[in-house]
């Protein structure tokens, strides 16, 4: 079960899937929102603090990879877990090269997904921690200069 509540966003054009996975993640203690397209995903990210996006690759219009690019451009710290059809490993690899944390095959094993979610949340936390420390050092150096 998830220890720290994770702010996650489930993105898939299959509304039923988004709905059910959200319910389940909420039940597991997460703070979950849903979006039904790449565009809606970006809008949701602009509005609310999000740690991890669970993103389907195959979507009409703006697909998962395109959405991932935009997410990384606008919110570099937000982590992304890709949902792929089986056999689309090459797309998953492409996604991870673009900065996705990991990928998971659909239909996904819930425990696997939770582990990956926590991993993603962890990576984001570490990164934020590093940034905080760097900022602190920068601040110290500045005050030292004075």
């Amino acid at each position: 079960m998830i220890k720290i509540p994770i702010n996650s966003l489930v993105v898939d054009d299959e509304k039923d899937f988004v709905e059910m996975l959200s319910l389940r993640l909420q039940e597991a203690g997460g703070n979950v929102k849903g979006a039904y397209s790449g565009k809606e995903c970006l809008e949701a990210l602009a509005e609310a603090d999000t740690d991890v996006v669970i993103l389907d690759i195959k979507m009409p219009g703006m697909d998962g990879i395109e959405t991932l690019r935009e997410i990384k451009k606008r919110h570099p710290l937000v982590e992304v877990i890709l949902l792929t059809g089986h056999g689309a490993v090459d797309t998953a690899v492409e996604g991870m090269k673009l900065g996705a944390f990991d990928y998971i095959n659909k239909p996904a094993d819930f425990e696997d997904l939770l582990t990956k979610l926590e991993g993603a949340r962890g990576r984001k936390a570490e990164q934020e921690e590093r940034i905080r420390k760097a900022e602190a050092r920068a601040l110290l150096r500045k005050s030292g200069d004075i």
Binding site: E14, D16, F17, M20, L21, L23, R24, E27, A28, G85, H86, K106, P107, A108, F110
Partner: peptide, 16 residues
């Protein structure tokens, strides 16, 4: 695979 994923999530949620 898509409907399968939905069934799986629904069943998982009911179990919870």
């Amino acid at each position: 695979n898509n409907p399968l994923a939905i069934i799986k999530e629904s069943a998982g949620w009911l179990r919870m």
